[in-house]
Amino acid sequence: MTVIVVTGTDTDVGKTVFAAALTGALGASYWKPVQAGTDDGTDRQRVARLAGIAPDRILPEAYSLATPCSPHRAAAIDGVTIDLDRLVLPQVTGPIVVEGAGGVLVPIVGTTTFADLFTRWGQPVVLVARTALGTINHSLLSIEALRARGVPIRGVAFIGDAVPDSEDTIVRLGGVRRLGRLPFVRHLTPDTLARAFADGFDVEDFR
């Protein structure tokens, strides 16, 4: 089973759209262990809509929390106790794309962050970073946090308009691989997303 963990430098950087594109390109299963915020739909529903894969490959969350904030706080507000032993990677046939919530140091419960959970899993992580102002600092801090915990980094996937200097600086200073860039797609459908991913990435880098 090939596991690809998708995390981000912050919330709303585009990691769910990237995860949907990657899931579709690999014909993978998809799992988001903790969903926080359900009023506007869930990331699982967005991936199901955009990935173009069989419904049984979209796995239910271990925890689906109504409140849209950090999982540790959302759980407290919703009256839910998160048990880390439930956040074990599912066993599936073929590859699986696993998406974290928010950035790498977002707390899940107590002092345990997503970066700590990634350490438990020991699987390669793709860091999704937008190309907007501030991305160099956010990306390099995220890379340092992952490395400090011994989390293997598969590379960085950029989201947005091309900003070659920022992208090159992150790759050079962070000592990471540039996997590609997913531009903004005006009308998101499974077809438009698949084409944008194919133009910006080599799917063999994820196998």
Rank of each mutant, 00 (worst) to 15 (best):
G134Q: 04
S139F: 00
V128I: 15
L127E: 02
R154V: 02
I153D: 09
A76W: 06
V97I: 15
I58P: 10
P60T: 08
V98L: 12
A76T: 14
W121C: 10
V125E: 05
P124E: 08
E61V: 05
D43K: 12
L65R: 07
I136S: 04
V151F: 02
R49L: 07
R120V: 14
R149C: 06
D168T: 14
R86A: 14
F118H: 13
V97D: 11
V125H: 03
T169M: 15
V156L: 10
D168I: 04
V151G: 00
P55R: 11
A66E: 15
R154H: 04
L140R: 03
P68N: 00
A115Q: 09
G122Q: 07
A129C: 12
V98F: 06
A62R: 05
G122D: 11
P164H: 06
R86Y: 02
A132R: 14
V163G: 00
C69P: 01
C69N: 00
R44D: 01
Q91T: 15
D85R: 13
L141E: 04
G100C: 09
R147H: 12
I153C: 11
G122T: 13
R86D: 15
D161Y: 04
Y63L: 08
F158I: 02
E167V: 08
T93C: 03
S64E: 14
A132T: 12
D56I: 00
G134K: 08
G150A: 10
L89S: 10
S142E: 10
D116V: 10
Q123V: 13
V128P: 05
T113P: 06
I96L: 13
S166L: 07
D116F: 11
V88H: 10
A62H: 06
L146M: 13
V151I: 09
W121P: 13
L146V: 04
L89R: 11
L146E: 03
G41A: 06
T119C: 11
F158P: 01
G100D: 07
R49I: 00
E99W: 08
A132M: 11
P55E: 15
S70Q: 10
A51G: 01
D40I: 00
I108Q: 12
T119V: 00
L50R: 05
T42G: 09
D40G: 11
T67A: 15
P124K: 02
V126H: 02
G100K: 03
D40R: 15
H138D: 10
G103H: 02
A129I: 02
E167P: 06
